[in-house]
């Protein structure tokens, strides 16, 4: 597919995506309200840390508040639902309509997913920022380099989430439903991304695994950037930021290649049943 054609079409794809997000605003709000796991974790871990800071990074109750509010913010700004769409469209044949258009279906999916971000940000940012200001502002870094790195890490976090879901979605070309695979993915994500608990508090072997998997870059890494990379100081922190950003985007490139291969092979098996 032509890259230039896709780029030219992208603003319109985004505009239509925003119109759809607005049309489904009630569903979007309900879905966002159900994303409560970080708030539950926050309450639990604040209680655990009430007696004093815990873990190798000495997380205090205030740290946990800031961590889980930021985790909620990052999760809501970088989430994607492309897997459900792909699974349904491949199984029912609706994918055919996308395949008939001269814009790559994955480009169209990305625009639809990204288009919901402004509305989601509009709903989640004011509340999150207010809560952060009230309960966690002293834990947020004021280092402009780390704040800049946080901004840079967010598109990578979104791309990793989106592409890993697309990878699961492509499995619908091979098996009858890829939603089961997603549950496996989600369990690993919850554990290894820092969504349930900061990675530094995981038991040794699980922590070692989480540190080499890409999930940490979907959530833990951006969150820790805004917390000033607990455990690291000055130039060590800055050097770590650079290497982590390189690893994050290397994972994005790797997933992109994997998606391209699986998509191409999957299309050969596509049966377009029902459409």
């Amino acid at each position: 597919m032509e890259i230039r054609r896709n780029l030219r079409a992208y603003p319109t794809l985004l505009r239509i995506g925003i119109a759809e997000a607005v049309a489904y605003r009630a569903e979007l709000i309900v879905w966002m309200l159900t994303t409560t796991l970080p708030l539950v974790s926050m309450v639990l871990w604040r209680a655990v840390a009430a007696e004093g800071p815990i873990g190798p990074e000495r997380f205090s109750a205030g740290d946990f508040t800031a961590y889980f509010l930021l985790a909620l913010l990052v999760r809501l700004l970088t989430s994607s639902w492309v897997l459900w769409e792909m699974n349904r469209e491949i199984r029912t044949g609706i994918m055919s309509q996308r395949l008939l258009r001269p814009v790559h279906p994955l480009v169209a999916y990305s625009a639809e997913n990204l288009a919901a971000t402004p509305l989601r940000a509009l709903l989640v940012l004011p509340v999150s920022l207010l809560l952060l200001y009230l309960y966690g502002r002293s834990e947020i870094t004021k280092d402009p380099l780390l704040v800049g790195a946080f901004v840079l890490s967010l598109p990578g976090a979104w791309a990793l989430t989106f592409l890993s879901m697309v990878l699961c979605g492509c499995l619908a070309f091979y098996i009858e439903s890829s939603l089961g695979i997603f549950h496996l993915w989600y369990t690993t994500y919850v554990l290894c991304s820092g969504y349930l608990v900061p990675l530094s508090l995981l038991p040794g072997p699980v922590r070692a695994l989480a540190e080499v998997l890409p999930f940490r870059y979907m959530l833990d890494f951006p969150v820790r950037l805004l917390l000033g990379l607990p455990g690291l100081q000055g130039s060590a922190a800055h050097a770590a930021v650079l290497s982590h950003l390189v690893v994050e985007y290397a994972y994005v490139a790797g997933l992109l290649i994997a998606v391209a291969l699986l998509w191409r092979a999957g299309l050969r098996r596509y049966a377009a049943f029902g459409a």
Binding site: A9, T12, I16, Q97
Partner: peptide, 25 residues
């Protein structure tokens, strides 16, 4: 396909027309 549609279900057809204008350049 008479039994399948490409129109965006919850938006007016005018939006699908605009979408197709963009994707078909």
């Amino acid at each position: 396909m008479g039994q399948k549609q490409q129109l965006l279900w919850d938006l007016p057809p005018a939006d699908t027309f605009q979408l197709n204008r963009a994707v078909y350049d």
